[in-house]
Design a protein around this nucleic acid. Structure first.
Lengths: 344, 344
DNA sequence: TCAGCGCATGAAACCGCAATCATCACGAAT
DNA sequence: ATTCGTGATGATTGCGGTTTCATGCGCTGA
């Protein structure tokens, strides 16, 4: 009665590792090759065969092994993205459209944070290259020499974003940080501000923006432009740095240029806490035009960079290169706009 | 086979595709196997050989092909992470420590956004499974049946985060959203507020928090708790929803519970714009304890969830499972804390 | 009637590495 | 002297696909 338990489980080789095309094919009465074709180009397989294969796939729950596919076809269908920090909305908001654009073409994103250290970036690039991505996105244009060498040697499309350079590794989509700093200085001058100060986060690009602002405004106004610095670019830092400017650096009023909207919002809060009116006693300019810029009171005058367009353009440039051709241009300057609101 | 020493340049095929271990070995006078060993366990190779191999690697710029390695070893050294949105700091700030923890063990992150749609999530899970990740992180505990099936069939460690369930797919690290809503209601009651309202973003977990709050507070106070809803959880939405509560829903004062700190900040801004004092005329409670919560004026009373610890714990739980054993616990409730500041 | 052709399919050769087992030289133990 | 590790290395196999080339077959046109 209970003879269902066969004592010879020997021939019963239930593939202990996942289902393969081989197994699907066996079940559908075709070879592995035909299964492969069925998935990559159904038009090359007869409708009846196709149906049986589909059935077998459904029954077995087969999921193709993309690693094997990548090895054989030399196309990983992965794109690496290296950003300094994903918790920083500025990078995250570029990444989202970048990723979406690529996803629609079947690519997946291999993401890493690199911090702001070129050496760490180099190590990360190497780790990513070992996965043979079909393209790579890097943030910024300053890299360790080794990074450049590896990337050039790997013969893979590369796009550097969020900055501009005359000598990109391959492609570049960004804007000039120095120009954005000068634009704020121009605005300050034209709006009639006589004195100014700066508040700057630690990263290299923020410093370039503020340096350009300070130099430009300083030159045209003939005044000293004090710049307070911080490593962390949060609200608390913005508050603290305005306090520093006023209490320790003798800043008595004028325009405060900040390297980010968050810092600028911190300045607004500290100003309110001190009973200073904005823009009466103190004018504030931010950078980034994050959502908060339009929502705070008073509205924040700031530099807008179309981050979504930037991310999308970066993806499209890479796709163009992958598709074989050269994109229409290697360098894309997406520019920036000064958005004037109430704070300055 | 014996024609390797053939001087005819015809058969001499300068490998046009990247450098391989084979090539490195040839240059170092050893076999491919030895190169493989040199990289995976240097102690198994003699020092002199090691030196020659290193030299050859440096000269050729060899970068091992992790795809091939993964295929052969059945370990991809990749971990999938699926989050609703990377531009939402709440998810991004879990992801950062999660990724860091795994990176230190040699894993890389395959990231995708899934939005808030279970079907999209299922498709994304399938795409990720095809890459044979060594582990998977999912956000939330509500998934399409197909997702569950695929995941169980794939026999891969899975951790669901940012929520709790009694029936996890595998592991779960999170907290109870309903409990957090009730905690706010308890607080409101104990602090003596007689009336309350809610402001709620569109995602399912936010709604569960606010529903629990409204029910709990409504029951104990015997009042109706109006809840205004939005799809986008930004500052502007917070402002608009407070306006809606006051202008259209007859809300005249009391405590406003918000499903996120950002919405709460919007409420603060709108309140200020209307000349309402906080917490005098209006008390505000947020959720998340983002950086802004401590920095705004007045400081925001909110629910803190240790997102960094959560991300780290998720990573560690997965690593424990990968290492073969069962983690000490399948379900980890990281809890939450109500942080009282000036806004309520 | 038969070469010719397109279609559906299969066989075989990789892709680049890791895992397994075999080989070899050399010194210690018997 | 023979045996037996032991450390260093190589040959072989196969992971699960893609690609290329070969095959069988029914049908068309001269």
């Amino acid at each position: 009665m209970s003879q269902s338990d066969d004592p010879t489980p020997i021939s019963r080789k239930r593939n202990p590792r996942g289902v393969t095309m081989e197994a699907v094919g066996r079940m559908a009465g075709v070879s592995q090759v035909t299964v492969s074709r069925a998935l990559s180009d159904p038009s090359k397989v007869s409708p009846e065969t196709m149906a049986r294969i589909r059935e077998a796939i459904a029954v077995t729950g087969f999921v193709p092994n993309a690693l094997a596919g990548a090895l054989a076809s030399r196309k990983s269908m992965m794109v690496s993205a290296l950003v300094p920090s994903i918790t920083n909305i500025v990078y995250a908001s570029m990444l989202a459209p970048f990723s979406e654009e690529l996803k629609s073409r079947g690519y997946q994103i291999l993401l890493s944070e690199t911090g702001f250290d070129p050496e760490e970036e180099a190590a990360t690039v190497e780790a990513h290259l070992s996965r043979r991505p079909d393209a790579i996105l890097l943030t910024g244009v300053h890299h360790a020499p080794r990074t450049r060498r590896m990337l050039l040697g790997a013969d893979v499309p590369v796009v550097e974003v969020w900055d501009m350079t005359e000598t990109p590794i391959d492609l570049c989509v960004g804007f000039s940080h120095a120009a954005s700093g000068r634009a704020v200085a121009d605005f300050a001058r034209e709006a009639g501000y006589r004195r100014a100060a700066g508040i700057c986060a630690g990263d290299e690009r923020a410093q370039r923006r503020l340096a350009a602002f300070a130099e430009s405004f300083g030159q045209s106004s003939g005044t000293e432009v004090p710049v307070a610095r911080t490593t962390r670019g949060n609200l608390a830092a913005g508050r603290a740095l305005l306090a520093e400017l006023i209490d320790e650096r003798g800043f008595t009023g004028g325009l405060v240029a900040c390297s980010s909207d968050v810092l600028a919002q911190g300045v607004l809060i500290e100003a309110a806490a001190r009973g200073l009116s904005v823009p009466g006693d103190l004018a504030v300019v931010g950078f980034g035009d994050q959502e908060l810029a339009a929502a705070v009171e008073p509205g924040l005058t700031t530099i807008r960079v179309n981050r979504e367009a930037l991310g999308r353009a970066a993806a499209q440039a890479l796709l163009a290169r992958i598709d074989g051709g050269n994109p229409s241009q290697d360098l894309i300057d997406v520019g920036f706009t000064l958005i004037r609101r109430a704070s300055a």
